[in-house]
């Protein structure tokens, strides 16, 4: 078992609009993969398809050697790009909800992360400023011992301190068995934490490579490579 996630020929259209066009991806355990591209490239659709919230028109997704089924969700921790918690919840309700719903939820870890991220469990989710909301969502996501973490724009539109804390949470949540798929258009901010990158535009995978390869073989930063790839579309 040396791939965590395999995606073969994923294709999806919404109405007449092609959202994903024959996307192939592979993520190895222990690695952080960045899924990058402009807004509307199809990043969210890929994550939602892995979560089985969106159903593909064609293609297969294999998680740890097994085609997706509803049990796969047990192994995936998903952080959507907006607040998906019930509006009436306080942070502590959300923690209790996650604890009840996910067997891999670690209450101790959630306490540690609340301390580290300076989250007030009494706060109402609805009134949290965006930096605090992202901190809360990342706390909930990484309190789970999942095999795959799907993060949709976890550092979008928030202050540098929250951003740094969130990246640190991601890094310290990693081990040899789990992997992260991080969708973002903020290439600069995640440059140093990525192992692999996938560039996506208009539903097509334009390029994929390891971050170290980009620096070592191509002598470029991920940002420079990104600009080069997207310039030549």
């Amino acid at each position: 078992m040396n791939t965590n996630l395999n995606i073969f020929g994923l294709t999806k259209s919404f109405g007449s609009q092609l959202a994903l066009d024959d996307v192939h991806m592979e993520i190895q355990p222990g690695r952080i993969a960045g899924l990058m591209g402009p807004n509307g490239a199809g990043k969210t659709t890929i994550l939602k398809t892995i979560m089985q919230i969106v159903k593909p028109d064609a293609g297969n997704i294999i998680l740890n050697g097994i085609p997706l089924n509803h049990n796969s969700r047990q192994e995936i921790a998903y952080l959507p790009d907006h607040n998906h918690l019930f509006k009436w919840m306080r942070v502590r309700d959300a923690i209790a909800y996650y604890r009840d719903m996910f067997v891999d939820f670690d209450s101790e870890k959630s306490k540690e992360l609340c301390d580290f991220l300076k989250i007030d469990p009494q706060a109402h989710v609805r009134t949290l400023p965006s930096g605090m909301l992202e901190r809360t969502l990342i706390m909930l996501t990484f309190s789970r011992k999942a095999k795959l973490y799907l993060l949709d724009e976890p550092i979008g539109g928030i202050d540098p301190l929250a951003r740094q804390k969130i990246l640190q949470t991601i890094l310290s949540g990693m081990n040899e068995d789990n992997s992260v798929l991080l969708a973002t258009h903020l290439v600069n901010e995640v440059e140093t934490i990525l192992d692999d990158v996938f560039f996506l535009d208009k539903g097509c995978l334009l390029a994929s490579d390891s971050a170290e390869n980009i620096r070592e073989q191509r002598g470029k930063s991920i940002m420079e490579y990104y600009l080069e790839v997207f310039e030549n579309v």
């Binding site: 222990g30 690695r31 952080i32 740094q164 990246l167 640190q168 890094l171 310290s172 990693m174 081990n175 040899e176 140093t192 934490i193 990525l194 192992d195 170290e212």
Partner: peptide, 11 residues
């Protein structure tokens, strides 16, 4: 160290 430097485990 990875967290301190802000890089991934493999690096």
């Amino acid at each position: 160290l990875a967290v301190k430097f802000g890089v991934n485990l493999n690096t």
